[in-house]
Simulated assay, not measured.
Amino acid sequence: MLKTAPPTRLLDLRRAHYASFADYDPSETVLRHAWTFFTEQPQATWYDGRSFVAGIYAMPSAGPNTWAFGYFETEPQCDPDEFTAEWNSLRAQYPGAWAGPILGSTFLPYRVVTEDSGAPYFPGEWRSRPEYAELLVDQNPAKTISYRSAERTDFQGVIDVSQPYLDRWTDHGFALQHLNPSDPEHVNVLRGMIDAVFGGNFGYQALSEPQFDRWRTSLASTHGGTPLLHWVQLGERRVGFSYLFALDNGTVIFKTIGLLPEFQAQGLGNAVAGALHQLAQRRQAPRCIYALVQADNRVNRMPDPDIRLIRSYAAYFFTPLQP
Rank of each mutant, 00 (worst) to 15 (best):
T222S: 03
E86N: 14
F202H: 11
T8Q: 14
E75P: 01
A44E: 00
F37R: 00
A280V: 06
H172G: 00
A314I: 06
Q284N: 15
D116Y: 09
F198A: 08
P6L: 10
E28C: 15
Y165F: 14
D25K: 01
R308W: 05
S149L: 10
F38M: 05
A246H: 10
F107W: 13
L260E: 02
G173S: 12
C78D: 13
R168C: 00
G49V: 12
V197T: 09
I56Y: 05
W98A: 11
T36M: 06
R214C: 07
A273W: 01
T36H: 11
R238M: 05
E82T: 10
D296S: 12
P184L: 12
T74E: 03
D25N: 12
P130I: 14
R283C: 05
A315D: 05
R32C: 13
K3T: 05
G250L: 09
S218I: 02
L135K: 07
A285T: 13
E82I: 08
A85T: 14
G173N: 13
S221C: 02
W67L: 09
R298P: 04
A265D: 14
V239S: 06
S312F: 01
G267R: 03
L276V: 11
F52K: 02
S208D: 08
V113Q: 08
L90E: 02
F263K: 10
D81V: 12
P323T: 11
P6G: 06
T84N: 10
D160A: 14
L176G: 08
P42L: 04
L260M: 14
G250F: 06
G192S: 09
P95E: 09
P7C: 09
L279D: 03
L11I: 10
T222D: 04
Y71E: 00
D138L: 14
Q77P: 00
L166Y: 11
T29Q: 11
D171L: 13
F263A: 06
A133L: 03
E40T: 00
N65R: 15
P80G: 07
I102C: 06
I102Y: 04
V53L: 14
S51Y: 14
R282P: 01
V299F: 12
D138C: 13
F318T: 08
A68D: 01
Q322V: 02
R214I: 09
R32I: 01
G235D: 02
L309G: 07
A150W: 07
Y18W: 14
Y94R: 15
W46G: 02
G173M: 08
F202E: 04
N140G: 00
P60V: 10
S27Y: 02
V252F: 01
A280K: 05
N270G: 08
I289M: 12
H172N: 12
G267V: 12
S242H: 07
K143V: 15
